[in-house]
């Protein structure tokens, strides 16, 4: 650029003022949805540990971090795409983009770099099957769920929930280079867990979603229909959650915990379904939402613990 064009650019900037970023590293980290990332790390680690063979421990750690970053990138790109509706919802209006701390373009660039980097790192560290699954997960979450389903159908999180169910499959693929039946069962558990979990949240946040014109089930089909659907999916989830014990990669201890936690989940879903008073229904929905997080964490936690104990005992026998 010449001095003359520099002056023209500066004059142009002085009309409106250049955009100077006020984003901190914390804002960039917030784009990654850390709470979702932690669940992804946990379920991916469980998938990896339950595999019949394991990679080098350092490779395993790097792979889990890559999966977490990939999940974070998906969250970041989702925030880039949904910045307009995030601004309308009280739950999300303090996110970095709607709060004005970051531009959409910065989030897009950050998300794309993280997505590309995480997939390449996973491919180099582990294998390209796992990397392909991670790439597909990110693609599915952004294009199929965020760009298409979320704003067009009440079944958005049923189908879109597949993205959240893939981390244990990716973890298993890191260890084995393939998708196993065990991984498919873990996928099924999270897939069936996602609707009651997300719809419970949508019930007590239905005003937010209505304001943003997101067709979550309570907004599109009504609260009563949503409570019925939550019960249906919980009834499907509880027996499927026994799959690890039935197929042998979970012990009897896991089976017992899955039964007890399933009974708890079912009880809360029934209680929610029977509510006729809307305020009481909101409270019941909050309880179910909170319990659903405990439910999934406990199930995968017990699976992981059983596996670690088995490995430690096997080492002790040498």
């Amino acid at each position: 650029m010449t001095l003359a064009t520099d002056a023209i650019v500066e004059k142009g900037r002085s009309e409106t003022g250049p955009e100077i970023s006020l984003a901190t590293p914390g804002d960039f980290f917030a784009l990654l949805k850390p709470r979702v990332m932690s669940l992804v790390v946990f379920t991916a680690l469980t998938g990896l540990m339950l595999a019949p063979s394991h990679p080098h421990p350092v490779i395993a750690v790097i792979s889990i971090v890559a999966i977490a970053v990939g999940a974070g990138a998906a969250g970041c790109l989702n925030m880039w795409w949904d910045a307009d509706i995030d601004a309308l919802m009280s739950r999300t209006r303090n996110r970095p983009i709607p709060a004005g701390r970051m531009t959409r373009e910065a989030a897009l660039g950050f998300g794309l770099v993280m997505a590309t980097g995480s997939v390449i790192t996973l491919g180099l560290a582990a294998n390209w099957v796992a990397a392909s699954l991670l790439a597909f997960t990110i693609f599915f979450y952004i294009t199929i769920y965020s760009m298409w389903l979320k704003r067009s159908t009440p079944q958005n999180i049923v189908i879109g929930g597949a993205a959240g169910a893939l981390p244990p499959v990716i973890g298993c693929a890191v260890a084995t280079g393939q998708v196993t039946l065990d991984a498919a069962i873990m996928f099924a558990i999270i897939f069936l867990w996602t609707p009651p979990h997300s719809w419970a949240l949508a019930l007590f946040r239905s005003d937010d979603y209505a304001r943003a014109k997101v067709p979550m089930l309570p907004v599109a089909a009504g609260r009563r229909a949503t409570r019925a659907q939550i019960l249906v999916y919980t009834l499907l989830l509880v027996p499927v959650a026994l799959g690890p014990t039935v197929f042998g990669f979970g012990g009897l201890g896991y089976g017992l915990v899955a039964l007890l936690m399933g009974a708890g989940m079912l009880q809360l879903a029934l209680k929610l379904h029977r509510q006729r008073d809307e305020k009481a229904a909101d409270l019941a929905a909050k309880r179910l939402f909170g319990f659903s997080i405990l439910y999934l964490t406990t199930l995968f936690g017990v699976l992981l613990l059983e596996r670690i104990v088995a490995l430690v005992l096997a080492q002790g026998e040498w």
Binding site: S14, G17, P18, I20, S21, L22, T24, P25, F28
Partner: peptide
């Protein structure tokens, strides 16, 4: 409006946040 006579002048807060981002990177 921001002063741009001699190029863009950052405020102290903008400089601090830019340093934080650069360090993190």
């Amino acid at each position: 409006m921001r002063e741009v006579k001699n190029g863009v002048i950052l405020s102290e807060e903008e400089k601090r946040r830019r340093r934080q981002r650069s360090l993190a990177l």
